Amino acid sequence: MNRMRNALLSIAIVWFAMPTLAADNVTTVPVRFDKGASSATLKGSFRGYDTVHYTLAARAGQTMTVSVAGSSNANFNVYAPGDAPGTSAALGSNADRKWTGRLPTSGTYTVQVYQMRASARRGEQVSYSITIAIR
């Protein structure tokens, strides 16, 4: 009887712990432009619900352009300083895989790269390149 109870207890622990084992990974990548450059192109990949956050400093009044290439599952959102995915509205997102906007404030901006829930749920791999320009 004890063996049966221990086996059931072990199964219950594993079953309820599974969601925490499959936690989303968020990778943060600081963006740095080469000397004299006003843009950078970076390559990356992720799977499922994982996301990549590109961070870069910019000043109010500058224009940011973000474009993504590669997997059609690669999507992005742009967040103003102090704003974050899941807690704030995005300043911009990928309509036609590109966004350009005038920046409202100075500080560190975040460009979140992710995939939609349907493909994330299937655990699809997303390979992409992203270009971020500040003018």
Rank of each mutant, 00 (worst) to 15 (best):
R47Q: 13
A23D: 10
L21Y: 13
T20G: 09
T27F: 01
V31E: 00
T41I: 03
T51W: 00
F46C: 08
F46A: 05
T41R: 11
A40I: 01
A40T: 04
V31I: 14
G44Q: 03
D50H: 15
A22K: 15
V52Y: 01
M18H: 11
T28A: 10
A12E: 07
K43W: 00
S45I: 00
L21W: 13
R47K: 14
T51E: 10
D24N: 10
G48S: 13
T20C: 03
A17F: 09
A37Y: 04
F16C: 12
L42N: 02
T41W: 04
V29F: 03
F33W: 11
T27Y: 06
S38I: 03
A37N: 12
P19I: 04
D34W: 00
T27L: 09
W15L: 14
A17D: 03
V26W: 05
F46N: 05
R32E: 14
V31L: 07
M18C: 09
A17I: 03
G44D: 02
A37P: 00
V14S: 07
G36Y: 02
F33P: 04
D24C: 07
T20D: 05
D50L: 07
G48C: 07
I13R: 08
F33A: 01
F33Q: 04
L9D: 12
H53A: 04
I11Q: 11
A22L: 15
G44N: 01
R32C: 02
